[in-house]
Amino acid sequence: MSNRTFTVMVFAIAIAIIMASRFIPNEYFFQAAYTVLQFVVLATAWNILGGYTGYVNFGTAAFFAVGAYSTVFLYNAFQAPLVVMILAGTLVAGLLGLGVGYLTLRLRGVYFAIATLALAVVLYTFVINWDYVGGARGAYLLQPREVPFGFARYTHLLYSAMVLMTAAALAVARAIETSTLGRGLAAIRDDELAAESAGVPTLRLKLFSATVSGALMGMAGTTFPYYLSYIEPSSAFSLSYAVNSIAMPLIGGMMSWLGPLIGAILLGSIQQLVQVTVSSAWNLLIVGVMLVLFVTLAPNGIMGWVDAWRKRKDR
């Protein structure tokens, strides 16, 4: 399937889902779906740099929070419309991604991963000390009273935006994966020196990959402050974003766009279920245990099983 067909299809499905959701009376559905889809975007975005290019980013929370706090800033400064907020947050997080991409120039493997972790803490400290966006106390954002496009509640609008963002993230990930670019990124992941010696402009590709990955993570965060009507640094920078966005592609499979999608839906839904039935503290334990189990016992994730099964069938 060509990428254009795929993109049209994925957006058609997204719009169909939005339309169908109007008939769902249950408010909880929107909450749960919003959270799961947010994880789909984060996992898909992480996988572009982590899975395709082979650079482990522990700083998902930093990008997410940059998206979220750019919304807070625009809210305080201009009461900007939602679309502007989404685009601006995506852009700012993309620029941060570009900066992180330059780190790959000097830092390979582990050092890069630790640097991204450090980046998250540095940004966290800045936000805590930045009173204009609420500092450590956090900030309140009122959802606009007028809800466009005939949605019943503003939350439904945010949910619909998240559905569209998910579609965009999946389309971008698949386009990268199936293109020449994706082949180049895979070469970088396997052996950077060999890639460069095969004519792959490794730095440019890494910058691109880090920028797109960061931008998509930031995009997922832009609607977050409105969604809760309240934001504080420790929730926006929560390390659970980092662990989830790593666990989901690892569990689903990192070689294709389907992996993070499957992993995020599976792990995200389990967490929603546990949150309702047990308590949210158990969520992270489950993510941690599943991450460790999969990474030790099924290193290629669910898609790895599927591939192995397909191969056996072919024989």
Binding site: T180, G184, A186, D190, D191, L193, A194, A195, A198, G199
Partner: peptide, 29 residues
Amino acid sequence: ARSFQIPKPFASMSVLDNLRVPLLYAARR
């Protein structure tokens, strides 16, 4: 073009895909 003393294959790819990389990125130039 060079070959490496210690082979550095693109380990996650098939043999054919290994050759696609330089064909796409270098030869086509």
